[in-house]
Amino acid sequence: MRTIVCMLVAVAALTAGYPQAAHGQVRAKAAVTCVSAGQVLEYDCTIRLANARSGEPLSGLTVSVGADMPSMPGMHNVRAVKATEQAEKGAYKVRLELEMHGDWAVQIDLRGAVRDRVISMLRFEEADVTDVKPSSGRRGH
């Protein structure tokens, strides 16, 4: 019993040390569209970033894009790739190489003037990529 109490106290002490800083930083939102890049499991994605509140496009950021499968937490980690900024304000392009077809949580990490992570759920299939509409059925119908 003492062991457990000690554990909990130590954990609380460790986490309490973290800074409790300001709320209300800029939040980003993203619209992601992907098309097959010709190769199997490779996709070209265009990401349009905007300030979630004002809707203003966010440009000049360092954007890296990774992906993870929600149905297998931590198992499929796609190495994050840097996205390149486009002429269009707030637009970035990236090529993703996935491991399998299915639903992926695309993680867009922003650095620079805005630090944030935006998640976009997409279903990647052979020919096309669509937004995920979660269905409850195990067999998917």
Partner: peptide
């Protein structure tokens, strides 16, 4: 619901 729970942004809000 099935869309899950997004925006648990603690580490971003607190610059961790």
């Amino acid at each position: 619901g099935t869309d899950g729970f997004r925006s648990i942004r603690y580490i971003f809000d607190h610059n961790i």
